[in-house]
Design a protein around this nucleic acid. Structure first.
Lengths: 155, 155
DNA sequence: ACCTAGTTCTTGACGTGTCATCTATCTAGT
DNA sequence: ACTAGATAGATGACACGTCAAGAACTAGGT
């Protein structure tokens, strides 16, 4: 009917679409499951995990953004919402008057500690249980390689 | 400092995170590129591609939602926004008083035909160029297998 | 004909993400 | 000290996605 739209070969299209579709399904499943079991969004979870990886659960905005590979303003909005729910707090920075710290609160720590185990279980159930160790390694290697190249030339 | 959060083995964690990170980067790159070059969002693009695959560019909401694997209400919101921009139109359904059709407009057709070639080129540049044919096949197969299993048990 | 249950799509509220823009502060060069 | 430019973060506008609830209609049993 309409052959004017250039596209990929049918094999490329099939594989590429499957890949994209998998990601959509994984993130929507994981997000819904996390929300239902813990009242945390995927975004909350990512921020809180990053904060538990850091001394005193306290880190500059900038560094946190780099750590989880988010845009600055995205993080700023997210932190504002999380402060309202007492998951994190904002602290002024003495050394640099422009800067600020994000600190995990005790409530935030409780939330992430309660959320993590069932979430990990879900990651296994929806993903890890369906791939072999070798396949996972292959996926990881390919992913890492492409991520590195994308980080190099941000064309 | 804090060992109470259960997590994955370090290999699992590394590979799983790389996989997730790759998807995030791909979708954000592709989305930004599409928006910049065509003024279409990824969501617009997906809907328009699905409409060009169908006779007369005309399909029931329900079927379209199933085709692109979206929730009904997500599609409804998206179509409302696209109607405002004259990319698609809504038509009543004679056979079923509840139902409705989505139809691509001529403006919508022009938009997708202009957007597709550069978008495909970008997909190659950010993804396909970085994997071998064999790797792509592997990715596709693994993805398809997991998608199928997730579709089976929606636990 | 009626009533109940299911289907199809819509809507409002709300959290999320991007972009452009703004303010405050720091740094470097003079 | 002064000033220009860079940097840190906040903010407003707007698109996107989910959830829960609702409106309109259909279908199937009585």
């Amino acid at each position: 009917m309409d052959d004017t739209v250039q596209w990929l070969s049918s094999e490329e299209q099939r594989d590429w679409r499957a890949f994209i579709r998998l990601h959509q399904k994984l993130t929507s499943r994981l997000g819904a499951d996390l929300q239902a079991k813990s009242g945390l969004s995927g975004a909350d979870f990512e921020v809180l995990v990053a904060l538990t990886d850091v001394p005193e659960g306290r880190v500059r905005f900038q560094e946190l953004a780099r750590e989880i590979d988010w845009e600055q303003s995205r993080l700023s909005h997210q932190i504002r919402r999380m402060i309202k729910r007492d998951l994190v707090a904002r602290e002024e920075c003495a050394e640099d008057g422009r800067g600020a710290f994000v600190v995990i609160t005790s409530h935030g720590r409780e939330a992430i500690e309660a959320a993590a185990p069932p979430h990990v279980e879900t990651v296994r159930r929806v993903f890890l249980d369906h791939v072999t160790t070798a396949e996972l390694r292959t996926l990881g290697q390919i992913s890492q390689r492409i991520v590195d190249r994308l980080d190099q030339d941000r064309s």
